[in-house]
Design a protein around this nucleic acid. Structure first.
Lengths: 211, 211
DNA sequence: CATTTATATAGACAGCGTCAAGATATGGTT
DNA sequence: AACCATATCTTGACGCTGTCTATATAAATG
């Protein structure tokens, strides 16, 4: 492509300087684009570098290896999820049903809208790799926020206190994760039915949570 | 169009004939070994061929490409799961709790024992690929067997009939799938707690299913 | 100014999936 | 038995990949 020789570069804003400016962020953003368009398998560091307009080895100054890049992308996903959970408000007059419905649908919509990122976030590769401790911390912080949701529901007497918030969070997240999987490619369900399935799941959940 | 178990070839380990005998099966078995030891990412067709003792391109006479091989491995996994579900017996005197407990633990134990195969089975790659229609059929047959479990539970009046067997199967499988994920690498849970978490989930499930 | 440090580059290498062309064995037909 | 189509296996080659090494340049520091 247009690889301008960097010697005595003109400093016009249109031209690329020798130093990119914020290559790390640009790489993550471009990775997300590629991953959404072609899946994780379709992402190669060389194509990525080309898309951003740098040499093949430039990314290695910002990420130890490809896995570190993927972990950064996945971390970004957990940050988005974290903010989503942060925004769940528990108004005193809101019925439990409504609160759960909003939260569940927010989560599922994220998974449905960005299935490849979602799979990357929860794939075993990044979770088993001891190198990706920071990613795992980001993910667990996100889950911690989810646990807090149940703490709030209990302290506002919206749900009973028979089970610990952590246990409730674990079980409901498990269901949520499975529903996300069902929603992705028609695994064991029609995509159109997801809303209805989630609704049924919520109804059943309310039965066991009600005070 | 599966199978090529042609002859009663006597060629044992010592002899290495030009034709392998049942290369297809040998490739699947060796793939499982490698995947269990080194993960799906650690499987290359070249190493695989080497392990089996054939040339790099020999596998292409039995599988269209690498994905087709992986689909065959995953199909094998669903067959195992299918047999597991087949063996779930519903005795008239068995309490619902016991039946569910056995089934759930069987499923989770499979996922815990072979996490990489499990992830391969439910990974998006094979489900989004139109080429792997046979794999998808095998998987759905397995799920169909799971639905039958709930049909039996209803017809033997172990559970209520407020929801369709399909819907119950979808929701409970979702939870099961999430629990399997929790159990795999300590995602949002300690591995030691899985049994306890599953127990709680079952208890809650019984509440909503009871007649 | 000089020098250290951060960032970007080209070159090289082994490993990968897989296509193409050729070799050999097997099973079915005559 | 002889023949041949077909299934099976082989070597060779190609382009793509992740990533190491050595080198060049810009920016930061003092």
């Amino acid at each position: 492509m247009s690889q301008t020789p960097p010697i005595d570069s003109l400093e016009t804003s249109a031209n690329q300087p020798y130093h990119h400016g914020n290559l790390r962020l640009a790489l993550i953003n471009a990775s997300v684009d590629i991953i959404r368009a072609q899946g994780v398998a379709g992402l190669s560091l060389r194509k990525l570098a080309d898309a951003v307009g740098v040499s093949r080895t430039a990314p290695y100054h910002h990420f130890k290896d490809k896995d570190a890049l993927l972990a950064a992308v996945a971390s970004e996903g957990f940050s988005v999820l974290h903010k989503l959970l942060d925004q769940v408000s528990i108004e005193p007059n809101d019925p439990l049903n409504k609160i759960l419905e909003r939260s569940v649908m927010d989560y599922l919509n994220f998974a449905i809208k960005h299935p490849t990122e979602y799979e990357l976030m929860f794939g075993a590769a990044l979770w088993q790799d001891k190198q990706q401790a920071e990613f795992q911390r980001t993910a667990k912080d996100c889950f911690r926020q989810y646990v807090i949701l149940f703490e709030k529901l209990q302290s506002s007497s919206k749900i009973n206190t028979q089970e610990s918030p952590l246990r409730l969070a674990q079980i409901t997240w498990a269901t949520l994760h499975g529903l996300a999987r069902l929603a992705s490619d028609g695994v064991f369900a029609q995509k159109e039915d997801i809303h209805s399935i989630a609704q049924t799941a919520i109804s059943q959940l309310v039965i066991t949570l009600r005070v």
